[in-house]
Simulated scan of single mutants.
Amino acid sequence: MLNWSNVIHLAHTGNPSPDRAIIKSTEEWKRLLSAEQYRITRLKGTEHAHSSPMCNLFVPGLYACVCCGTVLFDSTGKFPSQTGWPSFTQPVKPNVIAYHDDNAHGMRRIETTCNACEAHLGHVFPDGPAPSGLRYCINALSLVMLEQGPVETL
């Protein structure tokens, strides 16, 4: 299980190799994604807080990268953070997320990207629930939910 020390170490020394690498041109990404998905995932944008019903959606399933389909998170690690973005405690595997220092906007954060296609996902913070203590704060538009079960919202 990853913890904050692991995340910082990866951000500073390098990320594990992904199982696969997806490389597309700007034009290909623009054809595959909506304008808002492109802005968030390829231009490191952020969606407005509380703008997605995915924040309050708690059903069994997997969450994959909207750009390349790499499975990133399992619903068992999703929790109601009240931050306005879907939040998770762990990725499904240590090598599906890449970590990068982000000093933009006068803040020191750790950016998360899809390790397969380099799509911007969001950020990870050390204020999540036990046992990992991590909160992966992810843009809903960077995700697609797979294997959805019966809908249950909070």
Rank of each mutant, 00 (worst) to 15 (best):
R135M: 01
L43M: 14
S75K: 06
S142K: 05
T41I: 12
M107W: 08
V92G: 03
H12I: 05
S17Y: 00
C68S: 03
V71M: 09
V92A: 00
K30T: 07
R135L: 13
R39I: 04
L154G: 12
A140T: 11
H50A: 14
V7R: 06
L2I: 10
G69M: 05
E28A: 14
L146C: 02
N115H: 02
G14A: 06
V59W: 01
L10F: 05
T13Q: 12
P91H: 10
V124H: 07
D127S: 09
D101K: 06
L141D: 13
I138K: 00
R20M: 11
R31C: 12
R31K: 15
T13G: 01
S81M: 04
S81E: 08
F58K: 03
V66T: 15
D74F: 01
A104P: 02
P131F: 07
D19S: 15
E118I: 04
S75L: 01
E118W: 08
N6R: 02
C55W: 09
T41E: 10
L134V: 03
C55G: 12
P150H: 01
T83H: 00
E152M: 12
V124D: 09
K30S: 13
V144K: 13
A35N: 15
H48A: 15
L141R: 08
A140V: 10
V144L: 14
D127Q: 11
K30R: 15
P94G: 06
P53W: 00
N139M: 08
L72V: 11
P126S: 05
E147Q: 14
C65M: 09
K24G: 07
H48E: 15
E36V: 08
A116T: 15
A11I: 03
I110N: 00
Q37H: 14
S25M: 08
F88T: 08
I110R: 06
G128H: 07
M54R: 04
S17W: 05
S25D: 03
E147H: 04
R135H: 10
H9F: 10
P18W: 02
L134T: 00
D101W: 13
T13M: 07
A35P: 13
L43H: 09
M54G: 02
P16N: 10
I97K: 04
K24A: 14
Y63H: 05
R31E: 15
A116I: 11
S132C: 03
P131N: 09
I138C: 03
P16A: 04
K78D: 01
T153V: 13
M107A: 09
V151Q: 11
V124R: 00
A116Y: 10
P18R: 06
P60W: 03
L2K: 10
A11Y: 01
A130T: 11
E118Y: 02
V59E: 15
E47T: 05
L154F: 13
V151E: 11
H12T: 13
K44W: 11
S51K: 12
